[in-house]
Design a protein around this nucleic acid. Structure first.
Lengths: 338, 338
DNA sequence: ATACGTAACTTAATCGTTTACTTAAAGTTA
DNA sequence: TAACTTTAAGTAAACGATTAAGTTACGTAT
């Protein structure tokens, strides 16, 4: 690697002059700046990040903390889409993305961040109530959380409230009143928001449902969704419509329904959540709420970089990203009112 | 952050002694070592990576270069699964994972790696014939490629040859002779291997197929797979079985088949590739070849770390990871021989 | 002619570690 | 007891950058 020292020798100036020239300080003449930049690029110079980080405490590196209940990790449809967008946005601003080690318990997350001098951190999908996560959010390092509101850092959340409401509104409009909800991990903030939205929307329409219509399942758990679907359909008064935690879990339900000899949507309506990837191509096309992962990721990156670069003037914000209802062929008017 | 200097002061020894004690050099007495470690952990010391990297040129950081033809990035089912496994293995050895910036063209990949002092690099899914990728593979930085063989670095590849062969063998055993193959991006090494395996296996069984049975499609492209399926089924002599580039693309084909009023597998048999995630739950269960992404990722990490830590004794290797045939309900005996 | 301001540098310290080299004390040998 | 080894430290330079403070030369106001 070419260092500033070599450039300095070649140009016949001091290392300090090279540094200041390349960083465009104004006590270096334009002529000198141009000559130095010219020679630096000729020699293939690029700064050593470790040295710069050591001296300035700015690493141009953002830590990503991620792990989900299902241990799907990077294969998590929703998060990987958010992260992809986050990465693109951050990289275009000159930041690199490094994962915070979750496979080695010798150090806390915060310690790891300090050790690597991360300029900022994005936290997603993790159990936000874990001590390690809380410590990180409360630390003085700029942080943005995805789908979780903390009082100590900015957050970008998908509009889960509107999401579930518009789904429920939609199926109610189609004539459903016996609406069941197989929901995701109970501990998750997302689940709580969606559940609240679910109940509120039903209440707005004066619809009451039996307790058994709400099943505590898990995200992305196909077999468990299948199980609860079977339970629901064997009730004395089964629902006419079932909402699932996500489109993947819905597949378990759909398979169960078909195996029981019922048809979608003729006998039973179903709807998912997420609207990502493969769910777009399922047949019949499923009703779902598509989360805007691109916006979520890029806004999170923008907010975080803003906080990093303008710590004084950037406020802690709660950004909510809209998604959109996707109507499909998996919801129809209920067959008959028993 | 607590530095060695502070520990040295507290212990009444020099900074060098602290460094040597914590790094377990043998010119420090056991008693001193213990005292220093004790106090270091009391004070919450952890080494500054930037400083260590600057001095030793070891970053304990691995660069990941990834981008695919479809720009699905991290949402790429196969790669994200490989990367997840790679990450877990690397992290358990104390290495962090950083993406090599692909959204900023001011620097070559190699320059970025040097700038960040990556100890090693893993390359996946990229167009390996790009100058930037070649430069990186040929450089002196330890590198492992996924699903591509280079003469200059180690590789871990999925056994695509066996994969496609066992799929073809399987459908031949079910009685098919009119086998079509909608394959992935032609430029990819994976595609070339699979295509060669496809033709060879047919030849082994003295089966010849018309040229139109082989369609150059793309990976993960649902609409394009649908298009080619329609083209194939409208041939004067259509195939009785269609193989797809991957399970996702297969969904496009399956939808097309159903829309044309045909049934799977009664009227036409289909098979995919990958065996990941959602494909496991599709109904009917699809025949596919499941790639062992966990093995691929962890072996790649192990090989890379070996090369990093034992550069003299570690040979460049070509590691091939077996997958396994998944028979499903999407392949049956052909209906009739026209 | 003197004093001062300014432009354009250089000097040297610093960030936190690592490590080759030096030193001092204690132990061993003849 | 002199000479040499071994042990357990310390000293200081170095990694590659940044930056506060210092220096020089020149122009300009008084």
């Amino acid at each position: 690697m070419v260092s500033m020292k070599e450039i300095a020798e070649r140009c016949g100036v001091s290392v300090a002059t090279v540094s200041k020239a390349l960083n465009n300080h104004n006590d270096i003449s334009t002529a000198t700046k141009e000559r130095i930049s010219q020679i630096a690029s000729e020699m293939g110079y690029y700064p050593n990040v470790a040295a710069r980080t050591l001296k300035t405490n700015r690493s141009y590196n953002i830590g990503v903390l991620f792990s989900d209940a299902a241990h799907s990790g990077l294969t998590h449809d929703y998060f990987s889409a958010v992260l992809e967008s986050f990465k693109n946005e951050a990289e275009s601003h000159g930041y690199d993305i490094t994962f915070i080690n979750t496979n080695d318990n010798t150090m806390s997350y915060l310690e790891r961040c300090r050790q690597r001098s991360f300029d900022g951190v994005v936290i997603a999908c993790i159990d936000f109530t874990k001590p390690g996560a809380i410590e990180l959010m409360n630390a003085d390092i700029p942080t943005v959380t995805i789908d979780y509101n903390s009082n100590f850092c900015s957050s970008v959340t998908s509009d889960n409230q509107t999401g579930i409401s518009s789904l429920v509104e939609y199926v109610i409009q189609q004539g459903h009143k016996r609406i069941a909800y197989i929901h995701g991990d109970s501990a998750s903030a997302v689940t709580k928001t969606r559940l609240a939205g679910f109940y509120r929307t039903l209440a707005d329409h004066n619809i009451t449902i039996p307790n058994e219509y709400v099943c505590a399942s898990r995200y992305l758990d196909v077999p468990l969704a299948r199980h609860f679907t079977e339970v629901l359909l064997k009730l004395k008064v089964p629902p006419t419509c079932i909402l699932y935690p996500d489109d993947t879990a819905l597949i378990g339900g759909a398979n169960c329904i078909r195996d029981m000899g019922l048809r979608i949507p003729d006998d039973i309506s179903i709807a998912g959540f997420d609207g990502l990837k493969v769910s777009r191509y399922l047949d019949p096309k499923i009703a779902t709420f598509r989360q805007n992962t691109t916006q979520i990721g890029s806004r999170a990156a923008m907010q975080l970089i803003n906080q990093i670069e303008n710590p004084k003037t950037t406020l802690i914000e709660r950004i909510v990203i809209n998604g959109n209802l996707v109507t499909g062929e998996s919801v129809a008017a209920p067959k008959k009112i028993r």
